[in-house]
Nucleic acid binder design. Structure first.
Lengths: 206, 206
DNA sequence: TGACAATGTCACCGCTCGGTGACATACTGA
DNA sequence: TCAGTATGTCACCGAGCGGTGACATTGTCA
């Protein structure tokens, strides 16, 4: 009665169960719901094993990061881009970025949580984001080597758009509107992409 | 010894102390640090008075919102804008928006917290933000009634920039860089404003 | 087979949390 | 003056938290 499931005694399976438990709780309830007790309970395992196998919560979080698909891969983004010109490239990047984020509820949770807290999870995401972001910038630079005088402005624009996409995508889980935009609707994001395209074209022609 | 300060027995003063305590804790430690015990402790007052005078935490939060300077006033923004043309208007709006946010640590804390939690404080901020935002849009519409075919694009651009400014300003309390931008430096924000100006001009000329 | 480590369970600790009832003291108005 | 109320203090409750030591069970290898 106390233990209906079979007592497996499989260290690796237990570790995997704990890692999966972290991901499940974080995606479902947010990072603030993570705790020694809740994680162990969700995994159906005694909490003392978190100390034994991972040396505490931080160790467990690191194991989660090492295993989880935390952030988009560069090729995953590049595959969706239209490289026919810089304006199209950035416009399609917005859509691709949002799509990649929506596929990763854990990433959205961490992006939200890092506004208020710093943990092994948020630090891991910061790092992988930076490297992938830099790599993506390089890809753009290779494809569009001659933006002329507008290059700095285009770079700033890309970063600002990236920030807005991240923020609005996280917020769009909970709220329907931001200012005048219905941020849950694909139509809205198409309009953002269109506006982006025209803006970049305007920048390049100035 | 137990009570070094004089026992004032002043209901209004106690209520004010509790409200101030909420603001102080929220600004200093974030909304997650708010709790019945911590608020009462910070105010130097017994926690039971929160129930007696405000009927609990939510009531206290409402009192805080009614009293606090939660969000920028429209005139405070408008005063800083350059209305000589739409592009300059939006460019100066970014700077004004950021400045107004930096002046209000509580607003920044709430903006950060609303990514993960919903409370009386976040709900109050949502409401005042919406009304002021709408009003500001009206001001722009009055000043620039004829944007032609580009009007929808300019509106989308304004909202996207607003989102980015909010996000990056909140983040800039903790991190130095976002992508390639040093978001704590005024210089960077000038570049963002410049880029904005050129983009809007580009949109209007297309 | 038997000793011993690996694995997992359980009971408990001190602490903080939100919340409540009982009590002490100061003020106020009849 | 004195009764009643407003104001504030204090002790306590059950629950959940992170953390630890003792114990039971299973597997392994000499």
């Amino acid at each position: 009665m106390k233990q209906t499931t079979t007592n497996t005694r499989d260290r690796n399976a237990t570790k995997k169960a704990l890692i999966a438990s972290v991901v499940r709780i974080a995606e479902r309830d947010g990072l603030h719901a993570l705790g020694i007790n809740s994680i162990a309970r969700e995994a159906g395992v005694d909490k003392v094993l978190i100390y034994r196998y991972f040396d505490g919560l931080d160790g467990l979080y690191e194991a989660v990061c090492a295993q989880a698909d935390l952030w988009w891969r560069v090729d995953e983004i590049v595959d969706q881009l239209d490289f026919s010109d810089p304006a199209s490239g950035l416009a399609t990047y917005i859509i691709a970025h949002r799509k990649a984020l929506l596929k990763r509820p854990l990433a959205l949770r961490i992006l939200a949580a890092e506004m208020t807290d710093r943990s092994a999870l948020t630090i891991a995401l910061e790092k992988v984001r930076e490297t992938r972001g830099n790599r993506l910038s390089e890809v753009f630079a290779e494809r569009f080597p001659d933006l002329g005088d507008s290059a700095p402005d285009v770079l700033v624009m890309a970063n600002v758009l990236s920030a807005a996409t991240q923020y609005l995508t996280v917020r769009s889980r909970d709220i329907k509107r931001f200012g005048g935009m219905r941020i849950q609707e694909d139509q809205t994001w198409m309009e953002i992409a269109e506006m982006t395209k025209k803006s970049i074209q305007g920048l390049l022609n100035s």
